[in-house]
Simulated scan of single mutants.
Amino acid sequence: MAEPQEPLTIRLSDPGEVVAALPHLLGFRPRESLVLMSLRGSPGQRVGLTARVDLPPPEHRSQVVSGLVRSLLTDGPTAALLVVVSEATDEPATPDGWPDVLQPPPAEDLAHRDLVHEVVLALDAVDVPLRQALLVRRERWWSYDCPAACCAPEAGTPLPTGTSELAVASVVDGQVVEEERAALVRRIAPVGFLAAQAMSRACDEVGDALARRTTELGWDVLVEEGWAAVLAAVEAAGPGEHGGAGARLSDHEVARLAWGLRDHDLRDRALTLALGESAAAAEALWTELTRRSPAPLDAAPATLLAVSAWVRGGGALANVALERALRSEPSYTFAGLLRSALDACLAPAEMRRLIRQASAPLDTRW
């Protein structure tokens, strides 16, 4: 097994740099979103867990904020940073909403200040200091706690331009930033009708052939052949002159891989690919298998895709992939356990530990 690769630690000190990094932290460009970031270490300048929800309506605000704060607490933050992403217009200012009582409030105030206030109270109740509360809109950012002229609603600070350290790290890690969360869903959407029919026929043919060969050779031989097929496909999907070959897999090759991953031992071996140098290539392969495999054969690669995404911090893609797996096969135990783990915001480091444990000689099956 390849030695695990720890995710790159990126320290972001400037508020604008943090805001510009959101698409890379989330995997897509957030819109009308409430984002809460865990800050860790001393003095709390290392970004940890990043949790995002759609901006809630007033009647659901308390419930959504409470859930968001509970998620943040699983990361053991020393502080937090709040970002509201919204194109909402400014609101009439009130004296209570302006941070400096020595200055008269402006005619208008930043949007969603009531929501920010509720987050502040929720964090204060669990003794987590809020380092910054920012609003992002029109490629600019504002601080809710800044009374200076540059923070006035009609002003704002332009987002930094150029290629950031985090953007470079994301490219190295094989991450693709989508324009919206829906694009992540489309990335693994099932193939069209005609392609699906051909894929279904291939799965039936490969399944029949595997059944005959199992009778002749035994399942252990078939598992080893399946693992060899996985490794070959991952190598083909990696960088190089012929890299990214996952899309060129034939229907029968996809079917063979998908059938093989139904075996728990083979699937648990495949988990380890999320930890080594082939992680990006393996994620590309799981994406291709999820997209092309019919239900319920898509459940295993979709869950492997969720693990791969979560280990590198791609929570949005992990959730999208798990939704696909559980929709395909609601009783798939591995996906159900992972769903519970992600709902509890299991840290990527803990996920890596569990993968290593699952790949041990006396592993406990999911």
Rank of each mutant, 00 (worst) to 15 (best):
G246L: 03
L217V: 02
W227C: 01
E32F: 06
P158Q: 11
L271T: 13
E17W: 00
S71P: 05
D208Y: 11
A198H: 14
I355S: 00
R140K: 13
L289W: 04
A344M: 05
L257Q: 11
G218Q: 01
E178V: 14
R29F: 02
R267N: 12
A233D: 06
A183H: 14
S250Y: 09
D145S: 12
P296K: 09
R201V: 14
V320G: 03
D208V: 15
A245M: 07
H117W: 06
L72Q: 05
A202W: 01
L305M: 07
D204A: 12
D343Y: 10
S143Y: 00
V126I: 10
R353W: 02
S170A: 15
L362Q: 12
S250L: 04
R70D: 14
L12S: 00
V206I: 15
A88E: 14
L257T: 08
T215P: 01
V47G: 00
E224F: 04
E180L: 06
P104I: 05
P296N: 13
L39C: 10
V83L: 01
R46P: 00
F193L: 13
L12P: 02
A280D: 09
Q132A: 10
A196K: 15
P361K: 11
E87W: 06
L12I: 14
G246R: 02
E224K: 09
G27C: 09
R29Y: 02
A236C: 07
V83H: 02
S38Q: 11
V85M: 04
E17F: 02
T333D: 01
G97A: 10
E87Q: 13
D100G: 08
P153Y: 07
P77H: 09
P4Y: 12
T157Q: 13
S143N: 10
G207T: 08
L115V: 06
G238E: 00
V85W: 02
L34A: 09
T272L: 08
L305S: 05
C150A: 11
M351G: 03
A236Y: 08
E241K: 15
H264L: 10
A279G: 02
A284Y: 00
T89H: 10
L34R: 00
E283R: 14
V176A: 10
D109T: 09
S71A: 15
G41W: 04
L304S: 03
V307W: 12
E59T: 08
L184P: 01
Q63F: 07
P361Y: 11
D343Q: 12
D75R: 03
G27R: 03
V185T: 12
R248F: 09
V128C: 05
M1W: 14
L231Y: 00
L36Q: 11
D208E: 15
E225K: 11
S340R: 13
L134I: 02
A300E: 15
S42T: 15
M351W: 05
A284P: 01
G192V: 06
A189V: 08
A148I: 00
H24M: 09
E154N: 13
F193W: 14
